[in-house]
Simulated scan of single mutants.
Amino acid sequence: MNTTDSYPFLKITQAIDHLSTHFRDQPSLADLASQVNLSEFHFQRLFTEWAGVSPKKFSQYLTLDYAKQQLRNGAPLADAAYEAGLSGTGRLHDLFVRIEGVTPGQFKQAGAGLSLVYGVFNSPFGAYVLGAITGKLAVIHFLDDAENPPAILTAAWPGITLRHEPAAVQFLADQVFPATGTTRSAEPVPVLLRGSAFQLKVWEALLKIPEGRLASYDQIANAIGQPAASRAVGTAIGSNPVGYLIPCHRVIKKTGLFGGYRWGSSRKQAMLGWEAARVGQRGGVMSDE
């Protein structure tokens, strides 16, 4: 993959780091541009092309007041009836996702001879490795410069055979992050998850959070019928193997603080702001006035 593909996101995350720390100071365009060593004109154009809104408008989506408002509005989590284990097929949010789950023990018994086919692709949030087993998406892991995709994949699925064949999994990458100007396929995205029954319930609950909306750890715990398990919910969310598609980035602290993220807090803020801007343009969150 061409490393220049991630150039816009690298610059955007530098700006987001500064915005998230200094949003109360309302940093100027000149200040933000200087943080990423770009001219004001170039930075404004790059940021707006990526986010769809100006840096000033984007900063509104990173404020504590905005996050609290989203939590008060509440994601429609409680209207779903969850069963232990799997909930089957359904349109769970803006993406079609069909989940199959296996416990570690089940995989150990039936996983001999399986291959994980993978490739490295680019997204609005930087490079990521995508892995699939028998045509089902099993891993989306966003990459930092020093990370090694084969090591990541074997840690997620120990003992499995790896095959680097990007062309064979391109169709899944296109379903998760469609190319600019194209629409997402209506075909379900088949996902194979390896986890406990509790983890599967938590990951399924995440799929009920709509794009541009937020939920707290407590809300997720209530949604799965275990209100006292918010700490365990946080652990399960942190071990989500399929970044972005299963939207663990949409879960924040009940105080309105964004909190940490497996793939970096700046990336989490980028995802939340990017989604809020997209929904805002459709009139669902905040107008771009």
Rank of each mutant, 00 (worst) to 15 (best):
T13M: 14
L77Y: 00
H249V: 00
P227G: 06
V97K: 01
L193R: 05
L71G: 00
A132S: 12
G74E: 02
H249M: 05
P158D: 00
Q199G: 11
G280T: 02
V285C: 05
D288C: 08
T161Y: 03
R98T: 09
A270E: 13
P124W: 15
H249G: 01
S239N: 15
F142Y: 15
G52C: 06
K68D: 10
T4D: 05
K56V: 11
K253T: 00
Q44S: 15
N122A: 12
G264I: 09
G119R: 06
L29K: 03
A33Y: 06
G101K: 07
L245K: 01
E211P: 02
V233T: 00
K11E: 14
V242T: 07
A146C: 10
Y61S: 04
A236P: 03
L77F: 00
Q70S: 10
K57L: 14
R231I: 14
A155Y: 02
S123N: 12
A221L: 03
D65A: 13
L114I: 05
T182M: 01
G126V: 11
A155F: 00
G283Q: 08
E49V: 13
I224T: 05
G238R: 03
W263R: 12
L10K: 14
L64I: 10
E147C: 06
F41G: 00
P210M: 03
L137C: 03
G280V: 02
R231H: 09
Q69E: 14
V97C: 06
P227A: 04
V251S: 00
S54H: 04
N148Q: 15
A215R: 01
G212S: 01
E83R: 11
Y7S: 11
G126T: 05
L137H: 01
G260H: 01
F198C: 10
P149G: 13
L200H: 13
D5W: 10
R231F: 08
A112W: 11
I152W: 13
G195L: 15
M286I: 11
F58G: 01
L162H: 05
A132C: 07
D5T: 08
H249P: 04
A277I: 03
Q69G: 13
R267C: 10
G243V: 04
Q26R: 01
S6C: 09
P8H: 07
P76R: 06
Q109K: 12
D218G: 02
